[in-house]
């Protein structure tokens, strides 16, 4: 059900964004007496495509640089784990390295970035010596992944790659079923009379200084 979204993204950017989405919203298998069932994860619901589109819609597109940042941080993390000296040169040639790490290690890499425990001077593009941008990006990764996953995004189906203005729901947003959200409504007949009305107040109280 994953949809290849846009050809302009490098293969490594696609891998790394799939990997980060999988870290936050993995697919899960439930085993119960009657058998088993699957809850699709962020990769299945194309949330990585959503993230890539969002990062490329910023005033300065960030998808490729963010992917490179993940790789740089992953390499730094692994070097430290192995007790190797900190890499002092700009890193190239490790495209998609982040995606090869385990979920636990990917989480550690995100934490490393968030806590700025990485030399900032060798980071790619706009991230170089820019702690505020790194922190904003990490917060956005969590926020957008979780928002995208639980919103109607999956339901846009083939319309996902269109401009926001042209998108329309093509299918049922699967994650609504995971939460019990019935989708937009015209109303609910759950009316209870308010305990307090302004008219009631005006009859009973006046401002006292």
């Amino acid at each position: 059900m994953t949809q290849a979204s846009k050809s302009s993204w490098t293969y490594s950017a696609q891998l790394n964004f799939m990997a980060v989405v999988d870290t936050i919203c993995p697919s899960t298998v439930y085993i119960h007496e009657a058998g088993w069932s699957i809850q699709y994860g962020g990769i299945d619901l194309d949330i990585w495509g959503y993230l890539l589109m969002e990062f490329d819609s910023l005033p300065d597109p960030l998808s490729e640089e963010t992917s490179q940042l993940f790789d740089a941080a992953a390499l730094h993390y692994c070097s430290k784990q192995e007790g190797l000296s900190v890499i002092s040169q700009p890193i190239t040639g490790f495209n998609g390295f982040f995606s090869t790490l385990s979920r636990e290690d990917r989480l550690m890499v995100l934490a490393l970035l968030e806590n700025l425990q990485i030399p900032l001077e060798n980071l790619p593009g706009q991230y170089q010596n820019n702690p505020a941008l790194i922190r904003n990006m990490i917060n956005s990764i969590y926020q957008l992944t979780i928002f995208g996953y639980y919103s109607e995004w999956y339901g846009y189906g083939a319309a996902r790659t269109l401009s926001p203005e042209s998108r329309h729901l093509c299918t049922y947003p699967i994650s609504w079923g995971y939460t019990g959200y019935p989708g937009p409504s015209f109303g609910y007949r759950v009316y209870k009379k308010p305990a307090l009305t302004i008219k009631l107040l005006q009859n009973h109280s006046k401002y006292e200084n």
């Binding site: 589109m53 819609s57 910023l58 928002f147 109607e152 401009s163 926001p164 203005e165 998108r167």
Partner: peptide, 24 residues
């Protein structure tokens, strides 16, 4: 629909110009 309306980057109610193909 919440993503259509409230997506921070491309939603109808974002902080940006009317043309949603333009950035924030």
């Amino acid at each position: 629909l919440e993503a259509n309306m409230n997506d921070l980057i491309s939603g109808k109610l974002r902080w940006g110009p009317a043309n949603r193909e333009q950035p924030l």
